[in-house]
Amino acid sequence: MRCCLKIRSEYFFSIRFYGGVIILLSLSGLTGCASVEPWEKGMLAKPEMGWTPDPIEAAMESHIFFSKEGSSGGNVSGGGGCGCN
């Protein structure tokens, strides 16, 4: 009769970590354009790489240009119109 094997883990919840295997991959020097994998997007995720890194200041700028120049649009919405002179 096969039975009673060595107790390997308790039935209830109890965890102990040992020998965690961690494989490291350095991403420096990667090139290519075809398809950028999600783990390669560290640089693109930096705040200074955003289309509008400072939206509140951009709203003010766009509002000023909207009121003082003859053309507008194409960027972040800078609030409502005005009777600016």
């Binding site: 090139t31 950028v36 997007k41 790489m49």
Partner: peptide, 17 residues
Amino acid sequence: AQVLNPSAIVQVGLEYA
């Protein structure tokens, strides 16, 4: 918007008002 490579991204837009 299109990611070109791990360090560059480009965007084109068209607006009609």
